[in-house]
């Protein structure tokens, strides 16, 4: 489904990714863990073409997307919930969700999907005419995930879906991520500092440190790994 081969990305003179290779198979949940600044968000932004790779190749569904424009890449079936949620603050909840369907034309299915996200997050249905900027942090995260669901992705990239949220809401969001994965067989790549929950959810995980992948294994094994425990689980 998704494959990165020796990806390097630079921000001017700073090299943020120093040769990342990873892959995700259809229906898998992949988790990227690492400290602040390790390059997790850059990986996701590079996949979508926002910060294009300077070297290496990215394949999505067998197609080389390395040098394609972001809007072309996402039109192949990728959706991202970026760091900081990036809700359009002056668009209403409904309009934010509409933007998720920008590339879709199947009106009937869109209506069904809308019912589906309102079923997942009833609070959004209540607030549908409210500007996105007036929602609380947790509600904005729900809206960001819903907006991504509305684009019916085959590959969903989630960047820190639990950052700054109350534990209750975090758990709810992780449950829903699993649900999306199981119901639609959506492939998921999840970047997280909250390694515990993320690794429990993930089939496989990659550990990142300053722009490189230092370790990769199944979620279970990483949870049991001593180095991961001390560095990311705080045990």
């Amino acid at each position: 489904m998704l494959e990165l081969k020796n990806i390097q990305t630079r921000y001017g003179k700073i090299q943020a990714l120093k040769g990342i290779s990873m892959h995700a198979d259809p229906g898998e949940i992949i988790c990227l863990i690492g400290a602040n600044g390790a390059g997790k968000s850059t990986v996701l932004m590079t996949i979508c073409g926002i910060t294009p790779a300077s070297r290496g190749d990215i394949f999505f569904k067998g197609k080389n997307v390395t040098h394609m424009a972001p809007e072309k890449i996402v039109s192949l079936g990728i959706s991202q919930v970026p760091e900081g949620r990036r809700i359009f603050p002056y668009l209403t909840v409904m309009e934010n969700l509409d933007m998720g369907t920008f590339l879709r034309k199947d009106t009937k299915q869109i209506k069904k999907d809308l019912d589906y996200v309102f079923h997942l997050f009833p609070i959004l249905a209540q607030r549908r005419h409210q500007p996105g900027g007036t929602l609380s942090g947790g509600e904005q995260q729900m809206l960001a995930i819903s907006r991504a669901i509305m684009s019916r992705p085959e590959l969903l990239l989630l960047d820190e879906p639990s950052l700054g949220l109350a534990p209750m809401i975090t758990r709810q969001i992780f449950d829903i991520i699993r649900k999306i994965n199981q119901e639609n067989r959506t492939t998921i790549v999840l970047a997280a500092q909250n390694a515990n929950l993320a690794l429990k959810l993930a089939d496989r995980g990659y550990v990142m440190e300053t722009g490189t992948i230092t370790l990769t294994d199944t979620g279970k094994h990483l949870l049991a790994n001593e180095a991961v425990k001390t560095a990311y689980l705080g045990i």
Partner: peptide, 14 residues
Amino acid sequence: RATSQDKIMASLLG
């Protein structure tokens, strides 16, 4: 309107 509020997010939505 979306583009004027957040260009990166707009392009992430296609």
